[in-house]
Design a protein around this nucleic acid. Structure first.
Lengths: 340, 340
DNA sequence: CTTGCACTGAGGTGCGCACCTCAGTTAAGG
DNA sequence: CCTTAACTGAGGTGCGCACCTCAGTGCAAG
């Protein structure tokens, strides 16, 4: 049998009421009592039964994912995993929901966050681009007692806020290592494509990529980033032009998380199987493409892991516990055809 | 507020006692009552509060990891994660422990498993090589009501038993893809080193490796597997001999999970930085080696993930729930210097 | 000495559920 | 008709804990 609060009280030589005061930081506990209880906790190895705590508190965790309204397959994956987590965690009294808002206008995002109330929600995971307004709104959320997680998005790290996602500089460097090692003879040009270079994640990936290419594979020439603005026509246009002007493209690196548009455009300009193509995020499209060997590698952050990690962190913060850093580190996954 | 069992009873038009009979498969519930309750569960979206269930049942989960007594760094990682999980899950009333037994003699393993009692343990995760005795003992564990997980080890898949670990054929193929793509000009010999080729996991990795090398990279010649039997002297001996007879070794693939001995031996025979070296499992040694670029890639199964996955599966089985396959798939991780 | 305040312990209630008992109802079989 | 077995509902207890009330106790300031 595990020791209960009653055993703790006996071991500490105090009453249950005092144990309760200490455990829950209630007033009217003397320093002596506090230390007696803490000493006894260590001595008898008392561990609070979380199930009983939550039952007694009659607590229901409510967490919200704030996601962009624009997006393609990867976003859909995220939404699916949020829904699935909601189902799976219902028996643990955890409600998870997702809203999609237009993240183009930072004001809208900030306004939405402002409407959130600590009565309705315990924690929020936010995927939105960098902007002072959003940062302010996040700080105010925290002040209202709502836990905040920066979710996959490229905000600068904030105090009182956890980040879930990968180190994008490292992710870009990983892509660089793969492309570089796949071309040991050097020589050739590398095409870089992104939806936009405004986004922090794209910038960081590019930085990491450039760094390793310069250091390790200087004979491969990295071209300036093309921006598609998520438009198929524009993608076709700029990519076609780039292939026309650059006659020795041997590899393509797609920075953004939606790879379908750029890869499709590339396939119309070149013998795509002769190119080394590295993209981000596992989606139905990229999975199919790696199976048929159109693309060569996927750098991914597992959407299921990220969603669950965000939830675990929010739960820990809500309980005033420290999340387990070792468990919550999101890995930069490298996927080839063989280890899908 | 979530609906409680009381709400369920009202919605189903039966008493709490009958709801209890249905939910817990107790006798003396008519088919009509059962269907009324089940219909109401769907209708009002009733979800059992697991915390309350476990509290009322006063249940403490007890899980045991049965690990080999021989092993080096990777085994130590596993033990650490078991210990860490035990700490972290104490507040969820989950006790996790590990025992190490000599797995050389299948009889010893089987005998040990036979001593396990369903009073003392709810589930066991077993890492032990293939053998009929062990299989039998595992079946008998299951018959005694103890849940069984085959942990990382190369047993054939069994009924009533979950497997935690990676597809080793795919892992070997992944190693093959990396070595192959790192040598696009072809030509050269690939050295394969393993502690033993008796173990199922080594065999499977070799199969996967050979398959892709034959199909995709036939110009690289894969040498017969060297066996070190975990002995540094023997490793030095056979590896030195191999380098003497084979003058064009360009890559080394270490099949077994402890890479220290073989890599150290290789480093004495050749300019190690000119070789492409792929090993299995992240350990302090392999991590250091990839940082200083002695080795080029690590194929890993995350020990923390595997331990936690085994525990989640055992917990689900103990609760007569189905584990979430999507969450429990252990990924074949590919680690380069950049995405450690 | 009294007053006031910080502290303490005893005890109660309820969270959602499991598990038990027992009186009572219904329906089938003879 | 009665017997029997299958079923049902009402109610109680307890799991470990949070949260509350209230009657104290001790100690320091006035």
């Amino acid at each position: 049998m595990r020791p209960t609060a009653k055993d703790l009280a006996k071991a500490a030589g105090v009453s249950l009421a005092t144990v309760d005061r200490v455990l829950n930081d209630r007033p009217n506990a003397s320093k002596k009592s506090v230390s007696k209880v803490n000493e006894a906790i260590e001595r008898i190895g008392f561990v609070r039964n979380i199930a009983a705590v939550n039952l007694a508190r009659n607590r229901i965790y409510k967490f919200l994912f704030v996601l962009p309204s624009s997006g393609d397959q990867y976003l859909r994956e995220l939404l699916n995993h949020v829904g699935e987590s909601n189902k799976n965690l219902a028996s643990d009294m955890i409600d998870v929901d997702a809203v999609q808002i237009s993240v183009d206008d930072p004001h809208d995002v900030a306004n939405f966050l402002t409407t959130l109330n600590s009565e309705d929600v315990d924690g929020v995971a936010i995927m939105a681009p960098e902007s002072p307004q959003v940062r302010d709104a996040m700080v105010r959320l925290h002040d209202r007692g709502i836990k905040v997680v920066q979710f996959l998005s490229g905000q600068e790290r904030m105090e009182n806020t956890d980040f879930v996602g990968v180190d994008n500089i490292a992710a870009g460097a990983t892509a660089g290592r793969i492309i570089g090692r796949f071309h040991p003879d050097g020589q050739g040009q590398v095409l870089i494509i992104s939806e936009t270079m405004q986004a922090q994640d794209a910038i960081e990936r590019r930085i990491g990529f450039d760094r390793i290419m310069n250091q390790k594979f200087p004979r491969l020439k990295v071209l300036p980033s093309l921006e598609t603005y998520a438009s198929a026509e524009r993608a076709a246009d700029v990519i076609e032009r780039s292939f026309r002007y650059n006659s020795n493209i041997v590899a393509v690196y797609v920075l953004s998380s939606e790879a379908k548009v750029p890869v499709s455009a590339v396939s119309k300009c070149a013998a795509i199987k002769d190119l080394t193509i590295v993209v981000h995020e596992r989606t139905p499209f990229t999975e199919q493409s790696i199976r048929d060997e159109t693309i060569d590698a996927i750098i991914a952050q597992n959407p299921g892991h990220t969603v669950r990690s965000a939830i675990r962190i929010l739960r820990a913060r809500t309980d005033h516990r420290e999340p387990l850093a070792s468990q919550e580190k999101i890995r930069i996954e490298v996927l080839f055809k063989e280890n899908l």
